[in-house]
Amino acid sequence: MKKISINLNGETRYVHVEPNDVLLDVLRDKLGIKSPKSGCERGDCGACAVLLNGKSVRSCLVLAVEVDGQEITTIEGLSKDGLTPLQESFIEHNAFQCGFCAPGVTISATELLNKNPHPSREEIKEAIAGNLCRCTGYESIIEAIEKVAKK
């Protein structure tokens, strides 16, 4: 067991982990952060995406020990002070159905808009290409992001 510290959504959290503990499991089972979801568990679906030092990563492919001393942001952190304009836009466009992909898509789109506030439709598609959604056909998701990008 090793004690690691994570700056999680702006708060310093300490947790004991084994080297083979996966970040996604530690977030969900030990730290009570339930927004990242377990989908494919091999980097293909994006359901487990979180921001690590501001960049989206697949938490199913990261070991918890690797992020000792680093900064992690999840949906819980993004919407700490109420929904973000992006989240409002997702609701307005009815962008999700079952919602399983929503946290991952939101992480990817947030990263995109932080880096590039006015992306083109192509850039939006590229940014969420690694987030699989089995319900919506993506159109409503893309439109919701476009709306925020145009502001």
Binding site: G43, G46, A49, L52, K55, S56, V57, R58, L61, V62, S108, E111, L112, E126, A127, A129, G130, N131
Partner: peptide
Amino acid sequence: VASVGVRNR
């Protein structure tokens, strides 16, 4: 290569 979330790592 793959997707942004993979390219970041």
